[in-house]
Design a protein around this nucleic acid. Structure first.
Lengths: 145, 145
DNA sequence: TTTTGTGCAAACGTTTTGCAATTAT
DNA sequence: ATAATTGCAAAACGTTTGCACAAAA
């Protein structure tokens, strides 16, 4: 489950002929370094601390661009109606707790081969995957409501 | 990849002590019969034709209820920022086209065992799964923009 | 009869858009 | 110099909520 380096993301931008701005660099670094599965708002809040002029619009813009380049995956909701992103492109399973909205990655021997199987069976040009199992994490199973 | 009957969904409501209204029956029937992966809006539009007083609120309400009962899964987005639902609970892979926003199911021998593997490895109480691969369907690969 | 569900309208929060100012190239 | 990107404000969109009325049990 290797994390991409921020260089990987930044050079993806450069290769596509897109501009490498300080905002985009900050976003790429955050994506590469975190192992949470941040939403646009989370990224915005985090970077804003050290870069106060950053706008949410730019976060969305950059995420869109990275998704389009196939450098970042859209995970979707985790019961909280906001889109989570994942810069970890290696095949893995995401486990989302519907109560505390945390998402953790887990390894699966099985998932690794699925990509090619699906490509062959469907004829789709695959841009990414979103293997999310949802439920209640061990901690939240104990708590009520 | 068996489809649930509408009876399965309706009796899930009844068993939970919830009321079986004409609106809920119509929604359950639609979910059971379609092999698209409808959004709340799609369900609303479809049923509204024959049941003009139906409200979107009721569709959301019923979907929430069915999801809570574990009778329907939330699939998440398909590039269109709206939540798609899936009444097919048997383990399968969903393939979403990011251009035409269609979602198709495909079989995978591999997926069937994953559920138990994950439960054992994580300690999560699993409520559902959402195995979505996204990309471009054979048709949309040919078209531009 | 009681309690739950419905449907409307309004509120909410996330995401998108238009545009003038800014900045990477 | 040029064309792309930023950031603001406003709009748009999907979804949720409050409440009076209707309907299932």
């Amino acid at each position: 489950m290797e994390k991409p380096s921020s260089e990987f993301l930044i050079s993806a931008l450069r290769k596509a002929g897109l501009r490498v701005t300080p905002q985009r660099i900050a976003i790429c670094k955050l994506l590469a370094e975190t192992d949470s599965h941040p939403t646009a708002a989370m990224i915005f809040e985090e970077i804003r601390r050290i870069y106060p002029t950053l706008s949410l619009t730019t976060v969305y813009n950059t995420l869109d661009v990275l998704v389009e380049l196939g450098a970042v995956n859209i995970l979707g909701h985790a019961g909280d109606n906001t889109i989570h992103y994942d810069a970890n492109l290696s095949p893995h399973v995401n486990l989302a707790c519907m109560r505390c909205h945390k998402i953790v990655d887990i390894e699966s021997s099985v998932i690794a081969n699925l990509n090619e199987e699906i490509r062959a069976a469907s004829g789709f040009y695959l841009l990414g995957e979103r293997v999310v199992y949802y439920g209640l994490c061990p901690t939240c199973q104990g708590s009520n409501s």
